[in-house]
């Protein structure tokens, strides 16, 4: 474990916590008989969260952590896997099933057909992988899928007029975690013999590059202290 990877995992954890906080905020609004103005805004405007991206991430974790009960690596590793699995599936459940949270989900805007991402990633994983075994192919599939899983969310953000800052922070943290992982791979490449994983590295690089324009608008909105807005 190195500082880049720990920072990456913590950033990833933060992104999940921000999303859970946002869902909790929406839920708690409903409890009030006369919703406060913030609640009114939250409940009326779309949450800006893409259910498609959340479903893709649940699939990423489900196919990535198949070995959670067979290969024990460390307590930290197992706990983090359980957190990511549990949170991604519960977020999907909330947006799909929870009577209040799903009202804040704008399915008319979140129209990205994520099937078009799943199939090519699966085909690519069947062709390019480190070992043609069931677990290895699904693990490789999860890497390819994670690289593109943010696309529905980024497209939804372009369509959402006012991006509330929790959603903006969520996407920023999600992009930052993989950027930190790239530093971790560089560090491990130079410090550990025969640590070479091209598939992981290229997928991680593509994933981070997809956030490039978001990062640009995110930092310029911070610098100019204006509302985050992505060009359509």
């Amino acid at each position: 474990m190195n500082i880049f990877r720990l920072a990456g995992d913590m950033t990833h954890l933060m992104s999940v916590l921000v999303l859970l906080l946002k869902i909790h905020t929406i839920k708690s609004c409903a409890g009030k008989s006369y919703p406060c103005s913030l609640c009114f805004i939250l409940l009326e405007s779309s949450s800006g969260i893409s259910l498609k991206t959340q479903e893709l991430y649940a699939l990423v974790f489900a196919t990535r952590y198949l070995d959670i009960f067979t290969d024990f690596i460390s307590v930290y590793n197992t706990i983090m896997k359980l957190i990511f699995l549990g949170s991604s599936f519960s977020i999907v459940w909330y947006i799909r099933r929870h009577k209040i949270v799903r009202r804040s989900y704008d399915k008319d805007q979140d129209t990205f057909r994520h099937f078009f991402l799943v199939l090519p990633c699966l085909l690519l994983a069947l062709i390019i992988n480190e070992k043609f075994t069931f677990k290895e192919v699904l693990w490789t599939f999860s890497l390819y899928l994670e690289a593109v899983a943010i696309l529905p969310q980024l497209i939804l953000l372009q369509r959402t007029r006012n991006i509330d800052n929790l959603t903006g922070q969520y996407v920023f943290l999600l992009g930052a975690y993989r950027a930190l992982y790239i530093l971790n791979w560089i560090y491990r490449y130079f410090t550990e013999p025969h640590y070479v994983h091209w598939i992981t590295w290229i997928s991680g690089l593509v994933q981070t590059l997809l956030y490039a324009d978001f990062f640009y608008y995110y930092f310029s909105s911070l610098k100019n202290n204006v509302k985050l807005k992505l060009p359509a």
């Binding site: 690596i73 590793n77 983090m80 990511f84 693990w139 992982y181 971790n184 994983h197």
Partner: peptide, 10 residues
């Protein structure tokens, strides 16, 4: 050992 090494990340 090599395989074990590869999958120690989240």
């Amino acid at each position: 050992e090599e395989c074990f090494h590869a999958k120690d990340e989240l």
